[in-house]
């Protein structure tokens, strides 16, 4: 009995569960993706496109399912769940690579001379205290000279030489110098792209010239494709904001205003204490002021008024 016919018809009905390709399909179960690297079969493509695509898709899905069934599973109330491995396919980077930072003057010099960058520790060993202390900042070692209780004064020092002030000034100078160098580095980096700088400069000049006519540019001939000059748009809080929040912000502003004594008029001290000092002084000195009162308190005899009136009768 020949069963080959039956087998062939059965095989045609249920296509094989193994997918045979010249180049094996690349399956990435982590992303649930299949990539077919085989060249397109031109004959079947031209003959019937729909059927060709369907058979391609069927093969791909079959390969994916086959790989899924080899994965370890976990039981769940909805039936077994396959545990996907981490994806293998490398996705391209979403953002462009960061641009390298412009070199500072020192970095350029160090690179030219081959000087290696040494990482300086934030802490420094203090021999006297036998502990690690901050190099700068709070209780920093760089302030040691101005904070120690006794300082050696050089022999040829001036009379008004203040070693603490000298040390502090020197430190402040170093900080200022560093800041200046930093500003210079920033300026140098900004000027590194002269094209951009020039473009900005031209745009600024153009905007200025456009409004530099008698009508502030209102009645000038418009060129094709000329853009409207837009300034910086102001942004305000919404009107319908909670008034309670607004009051809170106002109170905070008020307290800041009060602490900023330079900008607002200083409150007279009388308000803070129960005693009105100015009034009390005026009362005690009988309107002659605090100086007279002080003179009287220092020594009654030396005061002019006391002698004149008080002992005049004994004469």
């Amino acid at each position: 009995m020949d069963v080959s016919n039956i087998l062939a018809s059965h095989a045609a009905k249920y296509q094989s569960i193994t997918v045979e390709k010249e180049t094996p399909l690349e399956v990435d179960p982590g992303f649930l993706t299949v990539t077919d690297l085989n060249p397109i079969d031109e004959e079947s493509y031209n003959e019937n496109l729909e059927e060709h695509l369907q058979s391609l898709a069927r093969d791909g899905i079959q390969a994916l399912y086959a790989s899924l069934f080899t994965l370890p599973t976990r039981t769940s109330p909805d039936g077994p769940l396959a545990q996907l491995p981490p994806p293998k396919t490398q996705l391209p980077r979403a953002k462009p690579l960061p641009k390298p930072k412009p070199q500072t003057k020192w970095e350029a010099f160090a690179a030219a001379k081959g000087i290696q960058h040494k990482v300086r520790d934030r802490k420094e060993w203090d021999e006297e205290r036998q502990e690690w202390v901050n190099r700068w900042g709070r209780n920093g070692k760089n302030k040691q000279l101005e904070e120690q209780w006794i300082t050696e004064v050089p022999l040829n020092a001036d009379v008004d030489h203040d070693p603490r002030k000298a040390a502090r000034d020197a430190r402040k100078e170093r900080v200022a110098k560093n800041e200046k160098k930093h500003a210079q580095n920033v300026a140098r980096a900004a000027a590194a792209n002269p094209r951009d700088a020039r473009k900005q400069d031209i745009e600024k000049t153009l905007a200025t010239t456009r409004i530099s006519t008698a009508s502030m540019g209102k009645f000038d001939k418009k060129l094709d494709g000329e853009k409207k000059i837009r300034g910086v748009k102001r942004k305000f809080d919404p009107t319908e904001k909670s008034v309670a929040d607004e009051a809170k912000a106002s109170v905070a502003l008020l307290s800041r205003l009060e602490s900023d004594s330079k900008k607002t008029r200083r409150e007279p001290q009388a308000e803070e204490s129960v005693l009105n000092t100015r009034k009390a002084v005026r009362f005690a000195s009988k309107g002659r002021g605090g100086l007279a009162l002080g003179r009287e308190a220092a020594g009654g005899r030396s005061s002019r008024g006391g002698r004149g009136r008080g002992r005049g009768g004994k004469r």
Binding site: F236, D237, T239, E246, S250, L254, T264, E271
Partner: peptide, 27 residues
């Protein structure tokens, strides 16, 4: 619209010149 911070500062300093700390009673 609500005042910006600079504007509130201007208003409050002017008002404080007349009513001082009583300004808090207005806010």
């Amino acid at each position: 619209r609500p005042l910006t911070e600079e504007e509130s500062k201007a208003v409050f300093t002017k008002l404080a010149n007349y009513i001082g700390k009583n300004l808090i009673h207005l806010i």
